[in-house]
């Protein structure tokens, strides 16, 4: 579904150049869920941003659904890939109601039956109809993240990029959102790439994962390998120790 070859991402130029991602390679099968873990600054979010086209300075090859994407994205790309961001407090426009947020997204993607779709989307993410005309400040963190997920689902994508979708939330709310994401994946046969610093969350959500350190992927393994503490790279072992 999604394949990345020799991805390099950098910021700045000359002596200020920072190589944020170096030589990243991985592939995710259709319907699978893939995790990216590592400490902050290791480049895991940058990979998602590069796939999404939010960062322009990258080289390498990104294949989505068999076709190679270029730096300039075509509209059809955004119908296939969507992203959910970390902080639901920052990723929703404070002066747009839930209806406007979802309606505008649907309009931009050229849907006709916007009204029916907004109702359907809210239902999909487990929000009651009364939330439709509320503003973000009238919602709790968990409800906002549900709106952000609904917005990502609006163009009916096949791939969702999840950038720490629950790290700003309480554990009880985290459980609800993770359950919602699992349900949506099986119902809509979505493919997930999930960034997290929490190994327990990644092992719950994903089948395989990549460990990143200092802008490089140091190890790719199955979750069962992780569970049996059979990680090979010393950094993965260290990460595992820190999270028990």
């Amino acid at each position: 579904m999604l394949k990345i070859e020799n991805l390099n991402v950098w910021f700045g130029s000359g002596r200020d150049r920072v190589n944020a991602v170096q030589n990243a390679n991985f592939a995710v099968k259709s319907g699978a869920s893939f995790g990216l873990v590592g400490e902050s600054g290791s480049g895991k979010s940058t990979i998602l941003r590069a796939i999404m086209g939010l960062t322009k300075n990258w080289s390498g090859k990104v294949y989505v659904d068999g076709t190679q994407t270029s730096i300039k994205k075509h509209n059809s790309f955004y119908k296939t890939v969507q992203m959910v961001f970390q902080d639901p407090y920052a990723s929703l426009h404070p002066r747009h109601s839930v209806d406007q947020v979802l309606g505008e997204t649907l309009y931009l993607h050229g849907f006709q039956d916007i009204d029916a779709r907004v109702v359907h989307l809210l239902d999909d993410v487990g929000l009651e109809a009364k939330f439709r005309f509320r503003y973000p400040h009238q919602l709790s963190g968990g409800q906002r993240q549900r709106v952000a997920i609904a917005r990502a689902l609006a163009p009916e994508p096949k791939v969702l990029l999840l950038d720490e979708p629950t790290s700003a939330l309480d554990v009880s709310v985290q459980a609800e959102i993770l359950n919602l994401l699992s349900d949506l994946r099986s119902r809509n046969s979505l493919t997930y790439i999930m960034v997290s610093h929490d190994l327990a969350v990644v092992s719950h959500m994903c089948e395989s994962l990549a460990v990143m350190k200092d802008s490089e992927i140091v190890e790719i393994m199955d979750v069962s390998t992780l569970r049996n503490s059979k990680a090979c790279h010393p950094y993965s072992q260290q990460l595992l120790l820190a999270s028990i």
Binding site: S172, Q174, A175, A200, V201, S203, R227
Partner: peptide, 9 residues
């Protein structure tokens, strides 16, 4: 409600 690394649900 916490996911557990060694006890998958």
């Amino acid at each position: 409600s916490l996911p557990k690394l060694h006890d998958p649900q």
